[in-house]
Each structure stands twice: as C-alpha cells, then as structure tokens.
Nucleic acid binder design. Sequence first.
DNA 1: AAGCATTATCGTATATTTGCGATATAAAAT
DNA 2: ATTTTATATCGCAAATATACGATAATGCTT
Lengths: 111, 111
Amino acid sequence: MAFHKKEEFGKKEQELADFAKALAHPARIAILKVLAQKNECICGEIVEVLPLAQSTVSQHLKELKNIGLINGTLDGPRSCYCINWKAFERFNNYMNSLFNTLKIKKEKACC
Amino acid sequence: MAFHKKEEFGKKEQELADFAKALAHPARIAILKVLAQKNECICGEIVEVLPLAQSTVSQHLKELKNIGLINGTLDGPRSCYCINWKAFERFNNYMNSLFNTLKIKKEKACC
DNA sequence: AAGCATTATCGTATATTTGCGATATAAAAT
DNA sequence: ATTTTATATCGCAAATATACGATAATGCTT
C-alpha cells in the first residue's frame, strides 16, 4: 500500500516539501525565469519558449499558482501571470532557515 | 505519451530541479534535520523517529545519497549517514542565485 | 559454525506526475 | 452572429514515486 503518510510529518516540513516540489521540475523553474525576465506574463509567450505543448504548460502554471508562487489574472482572452513575491520571499526564508538550522552542527562531522 | 522531456531544459535548471526534488518530501526533510541534530547518523535511529517502515526509510536515504546531499559509510553491520555539506552549500547557492536572478525585476510587477 | 542485529534490495500495489490531443470556454475581431 | 485567438480543462497513456512486507546480505557475537 502506498498511503500518503505525508500528513504525519510537521506542518513546516510539509509546507517546505510542497514548495520544493513546485521547483522539482525544470519546466517550472524555466517558467519562473521567463516570468522574471520578460515582464509580460502571458501564457502564450511561455509556450513559445518551452519545448512543451500548450496544455502541459498550462498545467505547470496551474501547479505554480496552486502553491502560490505565481499570480494569474485574466486580461481579455489571455491570462497574465507574474511571480508572487511575497510567497517567494517566504519560501526563500524557509529554505535559508532550513540551511541555517542544519549548518549549526556543521563542524561535528561524523563520517 | 509522457516521455521525459526533462533533458530538453538547461543543465542548471535540471540540476536545481533534481535538488529540489530531493527536498520534495517531508520525510527527507525530516531525515536531514535528524542527521544535523543527532550527530550519530545511524539508519536505525532515523527509523525510530520517522513514522515509516525501515525499507521505506532506506529508500529515502538512497535518494538523498544519489543526489549527493548525504554521505553513507559502512560501520560494521550498520551504516552511518551524514550530510554532505559541500553539496548542500552548492544547492543553497543555486537556490539563492535563482532567488536573486528573479528578484532583479521585482519592482516591475505587471499584475 | 550458528545465531543475531542491522541494513539493503526485491517484488508488488497504489498514487501521483508528466505529457499530449481533443474539446470546452471566453473574449475580441470581423 | 460568426470566426478567430488564447487559455483551461478533460480524458487518457506512460512514467515515477511512495510504501510495505519479505527476503537477502553483511558483519558481529557466541
């Protein structure tokens, strides 16, 4: 059986894991980079740049939106995406917090 | 069809995605925390702390080892794990680099 | 040599992710 | 009103990930 089990871990660990999962595919990292570079945020432009079908890109965008790393607003027939800096900052802080927590014991290597 | 397609992205994006994937499960984050806190690094202790079967923990350890975030050495019948700080530092730098790259355009929000 | 403790691996079941084409939806343009 | 354009969603197929029990492998202990 492969039940979730993920709920049995701490809330923070769960949330950090979810954030990390959002970055766990090169397409999504590429999307974030495009969103940061071009300030246009239009789906079609992303599709042009990525080696993926429109529906697939749309799916990746949805995942990024669900986790909160990007915002999407309708602009006529198109949709305009952009990075949610607040959420991004939070993620960044989580990551740095994790790194720092782990680094405390850095000197006492055992193997 | 769902072929990989992942190879069609940049090397750096791919590597960062792989790192992120390693953190994309709360069990693996928990393992890293345990490895940092206790400086004992023995598999059995991790199994005791996590709500997972021994074989499952072993699998997660293998993934962390494959990506290079931890080292594992044999110590008699047990195996001693510890964090690979060099790789961790590299991952941290990658992440910060990504954040900084994205932040450059932070002011020009479009939506 | 036999038994014990520890960990890795195998086999298997289930869940999730990835990807595409086809279709639906919605606004704009004709 | 109809067509065009842009995006989202659905349905499906294949690949991966998660989890466990059972078993194998390895090194101590007796």
